[in-house]
Nucleic acid binder design. Structure first.
Lengths: 168, 168
DNA sequence: CTAAACTATGGAATCGATTCCAGTGTCAAG
DNA sequence: CTTGACACTGGAATCGATTCCATAGTTTAG
């Protein structure tokens, strides 16, 4: 096999896709949305993704996983790509996102602890509960539905409040 | 106001909805999806949610916030409602969710660094660049860190890959 | 020459939670 | 009786990321 990914200096769509674990459709979508620069083409019209593409796509994936939107990401990455100073709005966006991420980090850490504790507790209960007993595991979920004003993307807890469409 | 929620023994749709902070549409949706048992009706056809409904809905909200899906939840709760002990399933799902959370934490940390670096770099650039270019890119980009507006909320990075419809 | 395995394209479909819509019924107050 | 605030219904829309589709050109192996 020639899937010597690490040493690649350019990628064909399928190679890059399988290297990062997404579909070529997804790569094409990213390109459409502007988070991936349009790659040059080989003689036959195939995309030839440049060297750093793997890292780039992984970056996008990370960003998405923490709640970025492709559009937001596109704005930021485009600015970054042309190297110069970003316009204020994009700088603001990045700053807001940074705060957001930091907040998520806290919330998620708390969540991890709670969840871990919960699971541990459950395992204890399950061990001593006959299989026919309710044991009501879900009732033990002590996660507060604190209406955290909201603000973070993937943090379910914060997103759970109301969000009016017209109210903004 | 008669929002004497705590002492209610039965609820009208709107009452319950505002008590838990969701819309009646959402309650109806939950019913459709099977996470809320279909309530009895008053003479005029209005839903009369039974006593424990507030807790039930809060439970659903909590579970959603931890990453459960309405469908997963429906399966579990239906089981439980007619006497079963779905605890093992719950334990399993929670365990999976915990793994997701841990992975998410990694992504968040990486993202924080990435973003912080970028912002720092930009601020450096901005500081030494005369503001000659307004550069009003970003047409309608809301600075609002608009969280998961809805739907497709948190994609656990682990299962962010492709998901076959038929292959489950 | 042909089949398999790539590549390409634009547009449509899918998924999940929630919301919106339009039409209708019910009830209490004025 | 009318008005307003509720309630009811099924279905459609929304949003974002991803996938699927149908169609078509290229390359490589047999």
């Amino acid at each position: 096999m020639s899937d010597n990914f690490a040493i690649r200096t350019s990628w064909l769509a399928g190679e890059l896709a399988s290297a990062v674990g997404v579909s070529t459709d997804t790569l094409r979508h990213y390109e459409r949305k502007g988070v991936l620069p349009r790659p040059s083409r080989t003689a036959n019209g195939y995309r030839r993704y440049p060297e750093g593409s793997l890292e780039r796509v992984l970056l996008v994936r990370r960003a998405l996983s923490v709640g970025f939107t492709l559009d937001q990401l596109a704005a930021i990455l485009r600015e970054r790509d042309n190297g110069g100073a970003p316009c204020r709005q994009v700088r603001e966006l990045a700053g807001a996102k940074l705060l957001d991420v930091e907040e998520q980090l806290k919330a998620l850490t708390a969540m991890k602890d709670e969840l871990a504790g919960l699971v541990a507790e459950w395992d204890r209960l399950l061990a001593e509960t006959p299989m026919d007993e309710p044991a009501g595991l879900l009732h033990g979920m002590s996660l507060e539905t604190r209406s955290t004003k909201n603000g973070s993307a993937k943090l379910p807890l914060s997103q759970m409040s109301r969000k009016r469409k017209s109210q903004k």
